[in-house]
Design a binder for these strands. Structure first.
Length: 255
DNA sequence: ATGGCCTCGGTTCGAGGA
């Protein structure tokens, strides 16, 4: 099973990129964030023609998540159960015996923002949700835009980012809490090139200068992580015209 | 040089992203 995550920053704009990427990426499952589409506008037919079924939960303008799959999608759950949130940020489903969770973690804006408090509370709820899922399923994977760069090596210039959102100790503690639950950061199971990132600011020639962050992640439960054979970030889509500011992360699991 | 870009909605600018 090959699973991937990609914050597409509008599926309406990026659909051609997604369809192109799917023709060569050989992914069984692709989790999308920031689809920015209401469900009635989701491109079900175009994706079906490409060989993928979809489960999705969207809203106008902001947020929106989806799971695309070559295999049947079962037991879809939208949102974090018992955590009322009008923002469409989470969708989960069972695919090929794996509980797949697609998440778009709030950005937080800045450390003194209400949105930052929302982010931290939201991460509490996500953590509890993942703990619950792991008590039910052996194979759980959480893919998405975490909006957290877990370590300084995930940041192009830690001095520049010091004190900013995405790298704060409280956010990193939430990421570490997932690792302490037993989840493995699939990317770090393997040797990786230095300064490999998944997001680059549109401004300031971010991509050309490789001034990026690694904030999109695939975390696998212990039983699933043991079967992880590879995890890479494919920055080819970021090189295209009119790209998303994020690029896909892909993980390969044996059988 | 402390900005710089992109997307959306809904109109030509503000909000939000990260």
């Amino acid at each position: 099973m090959r699973l991937a995550t990609w914050n597409v920053n509008s599926l309406k704009v990026r659909l051609p990129h997604v369809l192109d990427w799917l023709t060569t990426a050989e992914c069984d499952v692709l989790c999308l964030q920031e689809t920015k589409l209401t469900d009635d506008k989701f491109p079900v037919d175009a994706l079906r023609a490409a060989g993928y079924v979809a489960a999705f939960s969207g809203q106008k303008t902001y947020n929106g998540v989806a799971i695309l799959s070559r295999l049947p999608i079962e037991s879809v759950v939208i949102d974090i159960p018992n955590y009322p949130d009008p923002q469409k940020r989470v969708i989960a489903a069972s695919i090929g015996g794996i509980r797949v969770v697609c998440a778009y973690v709030p950005n937080g804006q800045s450390l003194d923002s209400d949105k930052y408090l929302y982010k931290l509370g939201w991460l509490d709820a996500l953590q509890a949700y993942m703990r619950d899922l792991c008590s039910i399923h052996a194979q759980v994977v959480l893919l998405g835009d975490y909006n957290i760069a877990p370590e300084d090596r995930d940041v192009h210039d830690p001095a520049v980012w010091e004190g900013q959102v995405l790298v704060s100790p409280a956010e990193r503690a939430h990421f570490k809490a997932l690792l302490d639950q037993g989840f493995k950061d699939c990317f770090r199971l393997f040797d990786q090139p230095d300064k490999t990132f998944s997001w680059w600011d549109y401004r300031m020639l971010g991509f050309r200068r490789n001034a990026g962050l690694r904030i999109d992640h695939i975390l696998a439960s212990p039983a699933l992580a043991a079967a992880c054979r590879a995890c890479v970030i494919d920055n080819a889509p970021r090189k295209r015209e009119q790209p998303s500011d994020h690029t896909p992360v892909i993980a390969d699991f044996s059988a």
